[in-house]
Design a protein around this nucleic acid. Structure first.
Length: 482
RNA sequence: CGGAGUUUAGCGCAGCUUGGUAGCGCGCCUGCCUUGGGAGCAGGAGGUCGCAGGUUCGAAUCCUGUAACUCCGACCA
């Protein structure tokens, strides 16, 4: 539609080229910029503020579940990586090394951390003596580096920001419970705060974290039908405890290895936020995470400003008193129409327009970002109305994302069907799997889709392996993934 | 890491085939004017053409190399 295009001429439509849309949107919305180093980005203030909001919400949940924050070093001695074979093999291709300082070679090379299991494991071995020292429940907010061959802003960058939780427990049962608890924390956060529905499940052995006994994930569907792993939680068993000799003396006077867990969520989640909710006008932020929830735009010629501006200021105060994150744009050198488009592009959930006509009617015009709907409310009830509306938008965005995901998900009885689903219909395919790595690899080779996870509650159970036709051990979600 | 494409003003692009004084739109600055879906007029600033070599009297343009970005593949919690 020509008029539609006119509003957003700076952004490539999603239907034309989803990748271009994504890059256009994050650039125009001023979330990031490319850095001079390959594969690295700058989080500009508007992008970093979103991350701060995510940090704030997650950190509160971690603390409510008994965790405390700490910070471990960026550099990890080479010898640490050699202690856990699977771990070193998993990360070796993407590790950068510090080999010399001031022109002199180091005795031992230092890796820039890709994740901190090893250095934290080493420290835990020093700190833990007795069952009375357990559990250890620590989280770290940090940057990590993985030298990726192919990068994409927020989704896969050479350096990224994340949190990594690392816990140590006396028993397997307790550690497994922790692993699941944190997966639930992620799920609750992503679904209720980011309005993104996820699929909870277990990773197949080929997709699990190097060094883990079991990896669990939450998977989300982007608007192009591709999957994005939104968070992971690992039960590491005694693997790292054995490698780093993390032992404790139990009540029965026996020396035992601890059971460890780790769990992480990264700035990649910003990519999900953008690709789940964004549309051809740009970003669309769920109210609970939006740094600015409401933008007030006073309207009218010079001669009415004396009347409009104080009223608009009162409106801002009323909303602020109702704990709504509100800002006013009263710049005179931008037209109202320009501002409408600008803040829609930036994803602000609600816009309030206040002009002479509104004042005459003692009302304010309210516009929803999610539906584009225009409403009015009496000025003195605006704060109450907007608060209700923000909740409604939050829910509507979630419902819409659920409907989209369900619409694009269905079961596949054979590999051809699976390929149609992921390549032509651009969706998720539910399929049986015999448990053989070779069958999983074959699906990837033929269809381009990888196993996302073995869902805890699949919509149906599949009987036969999608590749070899033998009885299925598991029902698995397959999708093309970021 | 392989294949393809791109790189010229803050952004988007033309100019390159056929070598000869650096262009357009938007944005930016000044002034006037203007405000309910990206207003208008006038004047103005801004670029060693990604980088390094080479060919040539002369290179944005031709050749070689290199870097970054985008897409497709390989690899990848």
């Amino acid at each position: 539609m020509a008029q539609e295009k006119e509003f957003v001429r700076a952004i490539t439509p999603q239907s034309e080229d989803f990748s271009r849309w994504y890059i256009d949107t994050i650039t125009k919305a001023d979330l990031m910029d490319y850095a001079p180093v390959r594969g690295c980005i700058v989080f500009k203030p508007d992008g970093y503020e979103l991350w701060e909001a995510i940090q704030h919400e997650l950190d509160r949940r971690f603390k409510e579940t008994g965790h405390r924050n700490a910070y471990f070093p960026l550099f990890i001695p080479e010898s640490f990586f050699e202690k856990e074979k699977e771990h070193v093999e998993g990360f070796n291709p993407e590790l950068p090394w510090v080999t010399e300082v001031g022109g002199e070679k180091l005795e031992e090379r230092l890796a820039v951390r890709p994740t901190s299991e090893t250095v934290i494991g080493y420290m835990y071995s020093q700190w833990i003596q007795s069952y009375r020292d357990l559990p250890v429940l620590i989280n770290q907010w940090a940057n990590v580096v993985r030298w990726e061959k192919r990068t994409l802003p927020f989704l896969r960058t050479s350096e990224f920001l994340w949190q990594e939780g690392h816990t140590a427990h006396a028993t397997k049962e307790e550690a497994v419970e922790e692993t699941m608890k944190m997966l639930d924390v992620y799920t609750e956060f992503v679904e209720s705060v980011l309005s993104i529905p996820v699929i909870k499940g277990q990773k197949t052995p080929s997709e699990k974290f190097p060094g883990a006994v079991a990896t669990y994930s939450i998977e989300a569907m982007m608007k192009d039908g591709r999957a994005l792993q939104a968070g992971t939680s690992h039960y590491l068993g005694e693997n790292f405890a054995e490698s780093f000799n993390i032992q404790f003396l139990d009540k029965d006077n026996e020396r035992k290895y601890v059971h460890t867990t780790s769990w992480g969520m990264s700035t990649r989640i910003l990519g999900a936020l953008i690709m789940v909710h964004g549309d051809d006008r740009g970003l669309q932020l769920p109210p609970k995470i939006a740094p600015i929830q409401v933008m007030v735009i006073p309207i009218g010629p010079q001669k009415t400003r004396d009347r409009v501006l104080p009223a608009a200021q009162d409106l801002v105060s009323a909303l602020r008193n109702a704990n709504i994150r509100v800002k006013m744009d009263d710049r005179e050198d931008y037209s109202p129409g320009w501002k409408f488009n600008e803040y829609e592009m930036r994803g602000i959930p609600v816009r309030l327009e206040l002009g002479p006509r509104d004042l005459d009617a003692e009302q304010v015009t309210i516009v929803r970002r999610d539906t584009g709907e225009k409403l009015t409310a009496p000025i003195d009830l605006a704060a109450k109305k907007v608060a209700e509306l923000l909740n409604e938008i939050q829910q509507n965005m979630y419902d819409r994302a659920v409907a989209f995901k369900n619409d694009r998900s269905r079961s596949a009885n054979n590999i051809e069907e699976l390929e149609t689903i992921v390549r032509t219909e651009h969706g998720f395919a539910l399929a049986g799997w015999c448990g053989d790595d070779a069958c999983e690899a074959k699906v990837k080779e033929v269809t381009g889709a990888t196993s996302r996870n073995i869902p805890f509650s699949p919509p149906e159970h599949m009987d036969t392996c999608v590749n070899c036709g033998k009885p299925a051990k598991h029902t698995v979600w397959f999708a093309r993934a970021y």
